[in-house]
Design a protein around this nucleic acid. Structure first.
Lengths: 344, 344
DNA sequence: AAGTTTCTTGAAAGCACTTTCAAATAAAAT
DNA sequence: ATTTTATTTGAAAGTGCTTTCAAGAAACTT
């Protein structure tokens, strides 16, 4: 476990190649306008190879003012991360582009409570070049700090009149279409469980879509048929139990998150109800579980992986001072019809 | 989006406080043996506050040779990450201790194919102080590189005669106990689907536990009842379809990963079989899904969160040159009996 | 009042790199 | 052979911080 052999530096390479450190840097970074003879170049490469030289990222960062690291920020209660099928898919998409650009990804989860200083440290300390921010909330003080700092940030999700670029789906539309599907099956009493507290913009939007569809069909959304979920199956379980115990009957439920849906489904089954015979269930996110559930879940497909990918790409554009083509990129979120809904 | 106002440096703080940068550093890092008058100290704090000063992490890292960042390395095919319930829980545990120590977490997923140089970059470039390595494989060339470099590394999982410290569960024992439970229910023909290719040590160990239990009961493990899964539900689905189509009858299956189990369960239901009436199913990992599945799954509880936490703590001990109390920490992995198994 | 001892503080070096700029060398032109 | 031009290379400064070392100031002895 000893770290005896010192790491070789550009100085070592220079010495071995018989050139100056400047030349080493010029060659290894293949600087355009500086012409180095092919022979010298070769010597440097060989020396670097021989010493297994890798430039010290910290030193490079210090001088270039770029750490080549981007941050993924999630705002959740840590324990709510556990069952989040979305995160991993998005992460994957991000890693894909991050890797292609030889960057690194730093991940942090901040709890909604003490986010005040949470990112400031990350940002001010210049630990990262930019941020992909998942799950923005309107009441997020720290996010406003980022704004003031003018820190390169991309939102995964959407925040009305935020200066930041964002990648998102049209939650309102997707939720409306989902609800319309339920309506088209003849359901009239449709319950709704949100995916998160309404301060999360995605939660508010999905709820709105649900309400719009109902109203367009001449149905007044019934508050007694609405419950709030929050990131984990347990919240869905509790919400559904409460719904089932309520006086208000319903034949279908739109649950704005598959993770929450997982718990809701359990509550229904415990009650001895069959899906979809006794109750139609429609989710949101299309996490891997959805298609393997019993029955496979009809749900809105959230292109999580793409969302992550696009967010990263947008961030890179911002970092390179290119004007991103779209300030607010909207990806389609189609309804995937499987077997958890049927006509009344 | 402009970055007009330059970030304030320790020099600015020094100037505002009317002291030297040395003093600023001494105060802000509360260095022990250097005594600074309370009055000076106060002035520095105030100045730092006023300028919203946060030390540049890069510069600190350069001089201290510590980046205060630790890496989480996962070896999977990226797309296999998607449904991995374990990762997020472990991540959470890690974040907990990482945060407590004011460190940061860098995450990377490397594909088993080109891992050769994959971490070397990370390590040689001194981007991170240490590594938590999830899913070590015996045939991992890069891991051997880490060994040679003497880089502070903790294994989440286990590798026979590796010099690295590790945190793990006793996979053999857990799998044996799980299988014994099935045996105790009267099952004799028990299929097994592994959680991953056998080069992953955890996969090999779980399989071994299954085989040991069988042999102890005087049953010769039947190769026709064995299939290999691999990280995602689809692999489980395919494995179970293949098992079901095979000539060999069986009344129970031990699936060494809940994620894989998710797919296997689907295959069984599509076949019109009831769980547990027609087929007992026993999983491994206890991902959030397990307790909300229909029926709730009996499975081996993998203390993922704790594993992550302990791995991190161990790494910190290594980094601080403390001898970790246990070179190979084994956490208990109890069987959680729910409703997916019943007597024949 | 002079000599010690203790407190504070700042100059300077170092961390490993990049990049500018001018000098040195080689090649070309007169 | 000498001047001009093109080609290479290296010294040095800068990135923002920590830390050693020694000096200056203040307090204490004798």
């Amino acid at each position: 476990m000893n770290i005896t052999k010192r790491q070789s530096t550009s100085k070592d390479v220079a010495k071995l190649a018989g050139v100056s450190r400047t030349t080493v840097s010029l060659v290894l970074n293949s600087v355009e306008n500086a012409q180095i003879s092919a022979e010298t170049r070769q010597r440097v490469f060989l020396a670097a190879e021989a010493l297994e030289y890798v430039p010290n990222a910290t030193a490079q960062a210090l001088v270039s003012r770029r750490t080549q690291v981007i941050g993924l920020l999630l705002t959740r209660q840590p324990h709510q991360l556990e069952a989040d099928g979305f995160v991993l898919q998005a992460l994957e998409g991000m890693l894909e582009v991050v890797r292609a650009h030889r960057l690194r990804l730093l991940i942090d989860v901040v709890e909604p409570e003490h986010q005040e200083r949470a990112y400031l440290d990350l940002v001010r300390a210049k630990r990262i070049d930019g941020i992909v921010f998942s799950g923005p909330r309107s009441d997020d003080a720290a996010l406003q700090n980022l704004e003031r700092e003018g820190f390169p940030t991309i939102l995964m999700g959407h925040l009305p009149n935020s200066p930041f670029c964002s990648v998102d789906v049209d939650n309102v539309l997707a939720a409306r279409q989902a609800t319309e599907y339920l309506l088209s099956l003849g359901h009239r009493r449709i319950a709704c469980i949100t995916n998160a507290p309404l301060s999360y913009s995605a939660a508010a939007e999905r709820l709105l879509g649900y309400q719009q569809a109902l109203q367009a069909a001449g149905i007044i959304p019934n508050p007694a048929l609405l419950r709030q979920g929050g990131f984990d199956p347990q919240s869905g379980y509790e919400a559904m139990v409460s719904l089932l115990q309520g006086a208000e009957p319903f034949s279908a439920a739109f649950v704005a998150s598959d993770t929450v849906l997982m718990g809701a489904k359990r509550a229904i089954r415990e009650r001895g109800l069959q899906i979809p015979q006794d109750m139609s269930l429609l989710g949101f996110d299309d996490i891997p579980w959805a298609q393997y559930a019993d029955p496979p879940m009809t749900t809105v497909h959230l292109p999580a992986r793409d969302l992550g990918k696009q967010a990263c790409q947008m961030l890179l554009q911002v970092l390179n001072a290119e004007k991103p083509p779209n300030r607010n990129l909207i990806l389609p979120a189609p309804l995937v019809i499987r077997q958890s809904c049927q006509p009344v």
